[in-house]
Design a protein around this nucleic acid. Structure first.
Length: 439
DNA sequence: TCTGGGGTCCTAGGACCC
DNA sequence: TCTGGGGTCCTAGGACCC
């Protein structure tokens, strides 16, 4: 969209809400298990660091990404739980549904937050925008069993500022005329969309607060910054520029799987096994969405956090780890440097096509692909019954062994719902499946 | 913040064509 | 061999988000 078109959208005032769950994951756990209410609760056990902390835990000084041993030291009565994304997603859906009682114009921005456009609802509801926001908040708080913070403003960027203004359980209204008051002491990097890099650049220009940024001359902003920052600047000055994305996301542009291992390693077989396992995981997800990737990116991260990557294209879309692992062997070999130690590998699948449109060009190809389809239908069925990675590629063996040794429960939530728990059963069921030449 | 994992969007610049 | 101008498509990489 051109700038001019965007400006014309901003010609009438809007009432935009940003609704944000307070300590969402920890709150979900407290809501589900009332015995946890009032207690310090931390999620992220499976990662070894905090991903969400209840306000009671924050009061002990627990911060995001804090290691668990540190947390226990600061907060001896803390309850540490593994993340359960299924439950959080369900509560997330209920959040959206409650907001949709008022307007269909809801953007599901994240698992714990959304935007809503309530413009024009004052008359039909006989309430002010603030009263509507209050009512939504009350319904969320009571029906979900924990609190939300809401911002009401003329656009998304300012609504974000507003919802963060008072937490937890805040309701902050920022009318267009008062925006600058709220920006005065707000560091520029606190603005949604302004990250570390841009705030450093702003600092060089002598700009540290959001208000200083908002007061820059328009011509200077357009000359110095790219489009996203110009849009933010416009919204900080009260215009409505960024539309809500209402469409449900049905497909995705990429699937990425990354895993860190400690200590870093320069064992080529081991590192390749890590990559191979990531490829298996990425393919599982791709098959679940009925997608086949034509482009594969592999990435090695060194112990000094230096990333090297290689890309390859496939002649047809694939979601089969056999094919992809084989195709990745040679790029991996050229990427891998035995004098360097690595701490993580990743694979990124892109250029998706729907599985159905796969049209292998050769007859022999199609027979081979058909076998793979059947094989992975069986693998997915086994996974559905006994748990993910019950069967896996021989090339991934070292990585699976490592994960068991480390007690990596990265996939635990899914397994839990399948009635399989613990390591012993899993070990018993772990049948390495060596798939070499299937044709 | 001594650094986990999964995404999206934007832009510059090269390849290629007329 | 050098000279014009303009368009589209694609990719690499940066920046940011939760």
């Amino acid at each position: 969209m051109s700038y001019d078109a965007a400006l014309s959208i901003g010609s009438f005032p809007r009432a935009i809400l940003h609704i944000d769950g307070d300590a969402f994951f920890a709150s979900c756990e407290q809501s589900r298990n009332p015995a946890l209410r009032g207690k310090p609760v931390v999620t992220g056990k499976e990662r070894g660091i905090a991903s969400s902390m209840s306000y009671e835990a924050k009061a002990c000084g627990v911060t995001r990404a804090m290691p668990l041993h540190e947390i226990r030291k600061r907060c001896p009565n803390v309850v540490i739980l593994p993340s359960d994304y299924e439950t959080y997603s369900l509560l997330s859906k209920r959040l959206y549904a409650i907001v949709r009682r008022y307007t269909p114009d809801v953007e599901e921005y994240g698992i714990d937050e959304c935007f809503a456009d309530i413009t024009g609802l004052r008359r039909p509801l006989h309430m002010s925008y603030e009263q509507i926001a209050e009512r939504i908040k009350r319904e969320l708080d009571t029906e979900l069993g924990f609190t939300f913070s809401i911002g009401l403003a003329p656009n998304k960027v300012v609504a974000k500022v507003a919802s963060k203004w008072k937490k937890p359980s805040g309701l902050t209204v920022i009318p267009a005329r008062e925006i600058h008051t709220f920006l005065e002491n707000l560091p520029a990097e606190k603005i949604w969309g302004i990250g570390r890099h841009t705030s450093n650049y702003l600092e060089k220009l002598g700009i540290t607060t959001a208000l200083q940024f908002a007061r820059m001359r328009e011509s200077e902003v357009r000359a110095r910054f790219s489009k996203p920052f110009y849009e933010i600047w416009q919204e900080l000055n009260g215009r409505f520029i960024l539309p809500l994305t209402l469409e449900e996301k049905t497909s995705q542009a990429s699937i990425q799987k990354m895993r860190t291992f400690t200590p870093p390693s320069n064992d080529k077989k081991f590192v390749f096994a890590q990559l191979s396992k990531n490829i298996e995981n990425a393919c599982i997800k791709a098959r679940r969405y009925k997608l086949a990737a034509r482009r594969i990116t592999i990435l090695l991260r060194t112990s000094t956090f230096h990333d090297t990557a290689a890309e390859l294209s496939l002649s047809h879309g694939s979601a089969f780890p056999d094919e992809i692992v084989t195709a990745c062997e040679s790029p991996f070999n050229s990427l891998f440097n035995p004098r360097v130690t690595y701490r993580a590998t990743a694979v990124i699948l892109t250029k998706f096509e729907p599985v159905l449109s796969q049209q292998p060009d050769l007859f022999g190809e199609s027979v081979r692909v058909e076998r793979l389809v059947k094989l992975y239908d069986a693998v997915d069925a086994i996974a559905a019954r006994y748990g993910k990675h019950t069967a896996f590629l021989g090339s991934s063996f070292a990585a699976h062994a490592y994960a068991q040794h480390k007690g990596d429960r990265g996939d635990a939530p899914e397994r839990k719902h399948m009635g399989i728990k613990g390591e012993t059963k899993r070990q018993r069921l772990n049948i390495p499946m060596f798939i070499g030449d299937v044709s």
